[in-house]
Amino acid sequence: MRPSFFHHLHPPTIPADQARWRHTLGAGGTAVFLMLILGVTGILEMFYYIPTPEEAALSVQTITYHVPFGGFIRNLHYWSAQILLIVSAIHLLRVVFTAAYSHPRRFNYLLGLALFVLSILLDFTGYILRWDVDICYPLLTGTNLIKTIPFIGDFFHRLAIGGGEACSTGLLRMYVWHIFGLTLPIIILGIWHAFRVRRDGGIAVPPPQARTDNARISRNELVRREVLAMFIVGIALILLSSSVPAPIAPAMDSTPAAIREAASQSAKAPWFFLWVQQMLKWGDPFIFGIVIPFGILILVAIIPYIFPKPADSDIGTWFPKSNRLAQITMGLVSLIVILLTLLANAN
């Protein structure tokens, strides 16, 4: 048989350790599955979505309330996107807490982090596409935040929403970024990331001599487990999507006055940006909204490069001694983000 990408990802046998739930948590694979669902449901939504300020929110209502199974498709898209962020975060934590980022996987760690950032941006732009009364303040403050960057802020602002008033003319750019400008890179980097997993020797496990169990599983067994995981996640998604609808709010009238009037109904950022919104309450927007969030991102990105290299026998084991510093850093970062989110939700 001709070797294919599928076979590259599924060699005839792999060490059993690489496919244990308690080791991988199944997070990376689940993320791939969710992205596939997002792609399919997203394309289906495009059949009805109209990216103009006047009609966008109405077309979302059409999808939700009129199109047969439209609401269900939209819920699937919404829930897959939210769960994707959570699963990606779990994947990142697993990689750091098992020292899996260590050489030779450092580069793939960066690819993974880039995918995470792209997912967040996709979630944000997707949220904006609702174009109802709830999205205006997050879009307005988010894009005004870009403007606070010295020298290049205005340029990036124009890149993001094409200049002009965010809540009246920003939609078209948000749409193109969502379905093309961010999606294309996430597909390319996603395939690259999966390819590199195997190129770097598969999922990180201790080297053969340090392994207690040298059993291997076959390609069929691996595929069987993947299908099982997809099945479980699929069922969970279907249950969730048929019982909890994705948020939707009344359309905003596109005259500036009405937008402003209506927008004051909701000033909450989407949940994954609540921690930034909370920090913005503390002072200078550039420091709290740009410098600190990007500082945190860079800190996470350089974990494999600045901390002592974990011992070979520790790679792929949970919470090994030799990468304590990385665990503490990552643990603190997650704790801070979670606490800020809770704080934002409390007031």
């Binding site: 303040y137 307005l140 403050t141 005004n144 935040l145 402003r260 927008a263 004051s264 000033a267 919104q277 913005l280 309450k281 927007p285």
Partner: peptide, 20 residues
């Protein structure tokens, strides 16, 4: 003047719904 939300009048003046 922080990030552009619209202020809401209250007893003492105006409050911003976005970052207080």
């Amino acid at each position: 003047t922080h990030l552009g939300c619209t202020l809401e009048p209250n007893e003492t003046g105006f409050a911003c719904p976005c970052h207080n």
